[in-house]
Every structure is written in C-alpha cells, then in structure tokens.
Design a protein around this nucleic acid. Structure first.
Lengths: 202, 202
DNA sequence: TAAAAACTTTTTAGTGTAAAATAGTTTCCA
DNA sequence: TGGAAACTATTTTACACTAAAAAGTTTTTA
C-alpha cells in the first residue's frame, strides 16, 4: 500500500473513530485532512471501503498488541492484566456511536468486529485459560467455553453504558475491576497467592 | 382484589409471558380464558393496566422467592445458589420477546422491570456481598458496586442470546455456570473450601 | 498535479394518507 | 349475569411523496 494511502487511512481513522461513522461525512474528512475529494476517492472507491479499511487497521493493531502482551507475560494472569490494560487504552479512544453506526449501516465492517470478538478474543481467552491451568494457577473445575464467553460479554456490558452509566463509572476503572474480578474467579489457591503478591507490589 | 380478577390475571399472565405482549391480543386472551371482552374490561380498564398488573405480579413473586431463599440459606454462598436456581426456573419460562415488547411499547412496565433489576436485584446482591464478607467467606478486596452490577448484567447477557446462542447453550446451564463462576470470584480461601465441600456432596 | 468548487445522483429524514389490525364499546341472547 | 357477536374508535403499518443531506463525479483553477 502506498505511503499516501496509509497516511489518509490513519488520519481518517482518527477522525471517524473519535466522532462516529455517520457523523463524519466524506466532506468532513477531506477538509479535516486538507485534501480534495478527488484524491480521497482516488485511494478509496467509496465510503464503505474506507470504513472497512479503518476497521481492518484497528483490529489488526489490537491483535498485534494482544499477541505481544501474551508473549511478554510471565504467566497467564500477568498476560490477562497486560491485555486488559492495552484494550482499555485502545477501546477507550473509540466513540461508542461507532459500534452503533457500524451495526446499523455497515454490515461488512460490523461482521468483522463481531468475528474479532467471537473468534480472536474468544480464542485468546480460551488459550489463556488453558495456559493458566497448565501453569497450575487456574482452577480446573470451570467450564472454559462459558467463562471465556463471559469475558467477551464484559466488553459489550461496559460499552453499552446501561449497567455502568457514565459519569458515575468510567470505562477504564470498571474494565480494570472487572478483569481482576474475572481473574480471581478463574484462579486457584496458587493463582490467588500470586495475585496477592502482585497487589502488594503496586 | 377479588378472586375472579386474580384468576384472570394469573391465567392471562401465563399466556402473555409465554408468547409475548404484542403477539397476544385482547381477543386472544378472552378466547383463551373462555371469557367475554365485557368481563375482561370489567376488571382491567385497558391492555396497559393488564400488562402492568402482570408485571407487578411477576416481579412480586420473584422477590418473595428470593427473600425466602435468603432466609433459609445457611450462608451467603448457599443463598446465591438458591436464588440463582429459582431465578432460572422463573425466567426460563418467560419468552425473551416479552422484554423486547415491553421496552418498545410499554414504558411504564419496562421501567418496573429495570427498576427491579437495578434496585431489588442489585441491593440483594450487594447485601449478599456484605453478608459473605461478614461471614468470612467472601474476599474483602473487591469493589462491591462493580461486582454487584456485573451480576445484574449476566441476566441481560444470557437473555440476549448473542453471546450464548441457543441451542448450543441453554439458559439454565449457562446461568448455573455463570453463578458458580461469580461465587468463586467473590470467595476467599474459606469460601472456596466451602464450595469444594459442596461440590463433593452433589 | 491536486485543491476548490460546481454539479449530479443516491440516501435519508420527515410528512401525509389509506388500509389493516387491534383496542375498546355496545347490543343481543341464553 | 356473562358469553358471543357486531360494532366503533384508535393505533399500526405500509406506501408514496417531498425536501434536505450526503455520496460520488466532473469541471475549473492555481
């Protein structure tokens, strides 16, 4: 991909993820980036393809960050904390209306997001559970499929804002509390000892 | 309330909660109960008041069952298991479209349902957390407000069917798994010992 | 060559209206 | 008295239409 296309993509991504897909028009993007419509349409045939590219870019970045977190973590618990920290930083910058807009008007992009949650995130958590069990810090008497899906669901619950209304609650705090609670729920005796030790160091 | 009104209410409740609010017309109810519209409207001025009465009845029953579970339980963990068992039995009999219909067309009734979740259920779980801490079986290092709201959220997640699609997953099984996971997440060493002992007895 | 501007086409929000469905009322009859 | 049916009133729904906005294209200009 040409350098110019990448620049347009990343800058447009910033505007759209911050303000919503519907709210930002193609004219808004051109004037925001200081380019003409001609140029914009030279690189992206229509708004749909631009949105799809933005979502691909975003999900790709998220995945890369998660995978590096997993590699650098000393154990399953540490990995989950690292992941939740980066998810927090990444998703907090996305306006919730983006998800609403995608679901309603951009079925292809929305499908990508759903697939990302139900395959990548789900598989990642499922692997994390297996890793934790193998490392002897997670309980063996839980249902991995249900527990992993529960973790996936947290994102929706927190983002919807119904149960944790802003400004009484803040995404990042709730997400952190939720993740630690989830880790406690999965941990066995040895895992909880590690958690306690971890808490002391903070 | 007269005996006849109660009979009409309970029987209409059965039909409506099973098939949905919008799907069941006033004519359906009269023919199903074998009464005339004259009689039905003698006891309920309009459909709205009937629906509201049904919701009041339903929520009242649910509350009564929960409160008796709490009293009869030997400790906080036992109480949560009893509650989740009765919630399961009660909510599983309600067609999910009922919630959809209420939310969209019966704002007063929907408000009752939301208030029930956000006050009664939430307070109940908050009390349960305090009880468990006092009984020395729950951790003290958790955020009760977040953890209680998380429990409230499970209901929505499971009922929506997006994360746990039927028929791959069944309400009652997922609800049971989820509740036990949640209890593990709240329990401390002593609580987990009680849980292990409990599992052996099953 | 690419931005700016002017332009055309498509999508969407909003409105009005007719038909259908349902709520709610009245009448008749066992 | 209360059920059955016929009736009226209200609400929903569907469709057509209009106006505005935004997508997408072409032309002009620096």
């Amino acid at each position: 991909m040409e350098e110019k296309k990448i620049e347009i993509l990343t800058r447009a991504s910033g505007v759209i993820l911050r303000h919503g897909v519907r709210s930002v028009t193609m004219d808004d993007i051109t004037s925001e980036l200081g380019i003409s419509k001609k140029t914009l349409y030279q690189y992206f045939t229509d708004k749909d393809s631009l949105i799809n590219a933005i979502i691909d870019l975003k999900l790709g970045n998220d995945r890369a960050i998660c995978l590096s977190s997993i590699e650098n973590a000393e154990n399953a618990i540490d990995a989950l904390f690292l992941i939740s920290k980066s998810i927090c930083e990444n998703v907090a910058a996305v306006n919730p209306t983006v998800f609403y807009d995608l679901r309603k008007h951009y079925p292809v992009a929305w499908q990508k997001v759903c697939a990302h949650k139900m395959t990548f995130v789900y598989d990642m958590i499922l692997n994390n559970i297996q890793r934790g069990i193998k490392e002897g810090i997670y309980r063996e008497n839980m249902n991995p499929e249900v527990v992993a899906r529960l973790f996936v669901a947290y994102g929706d619950v927190i983002m919807s804002g119904e149960i944790f209304p802003w400004p009484e609650f803040h995404y990042d705090q709730v997400y952190f509390e939720t993740t630690s609670f989830h880790i406690y729920g999965m941990s066995n005796k040895k895992g909880i000892e590690y958690l306690n030790k971890r808490e002391l160091n903070e």
